[in-house]
């Protein structure tokens, strides 16, 4: 699979240096990235709890006598809906993990002057952007397919 980032040419002259100003920016970035990763993990956990209790909630609604065609349709699709939401949550947790590893490795690199951790940190950052990008592209394609599907249905019902 080709990515946006395949045509990089390695530069032989190396004049880029992590100055104190740059290291300070990396450090602050890592602190915020750590905070955001923790918030993402918490939201994924809440989402997981909500998704796993979806079936029970539907049953309770049905027991309460809330009969409606919409609810029946939703109940018949509960398993499919749960699988889709779980897949999205798994993807979000992977993104949160990339974010967390980026932050952790960056802090290790700066604190212990660890070159390997620095390289790992930027690898995780690249992975975060790459997989977020792939997710966004998939969403755009999905919207496009849905639009075409809706437009075709509307035209079919008219003609």
């Amino acid at each position: 699979m080709e990515y946006l980032d395949q045509d990089f040419q390695a530069n032989t002259t190396n004049q880029l240096e992590p100055t104190r100003l740059i290291r300070q920016d990396w450090h602050t970035t890592a602190r915020w990235a750590n905070f955001l990763a923790i918030v993402w993990f918490i939201f994924v956990a809440i989402g997981l709890l909500g998704t796993l209790s979806l079936g029970t909630a539907m049953e309770q609604l049905a027991l309460l006598g809330a009969d409606s065609p919409g609810l029946e349709l939703l109940m018949s699709q509960t398993t499919a809906l749960t699988i889709i939401v779980l897949a999205i949550l798994a993807f979000y947790s992977a993104l949160a993990l990339f974010q967390f590893r980026f932050a952790k490795n960056m802090r290790d690199a700066l604190q212990f002057t660890n070159q390997d951790a620095l390289e790992q940190s930027w690898l995780q950052f690249r992975n975060l952007l790459r997989w977020s990008g792939i997710f966004v592209i998939a969403l755009i394609v999905l919207y496009g397919v849905l639009l075409v599907f809706v437009a075709t249905s509307v035209m079919g019902s008219r003609g």
């Binding site: 990515y3 946006l4 980032d5 990089f8 390695a10 530069n11 190396n14 880029l16 240096e17 992590p18 104190r20 290291r23 690199a109 700066l110 002057t113 070159q115 620095l118 390289e119 930027w122 690898l123 950052f125 690249r126 952007l129 790459r130």
Partner: peptide, 15 residues
């Protein structure tokens, strides 16, 4: 400073 911008890091930055 002990840290340096290696070719690997440059590639990750570029991507």
């Amino acid at each position: 400073h002990g840290l340096r911008i290696s070719q690997t890091i440059r590639r990750y930055w570029y991507e």
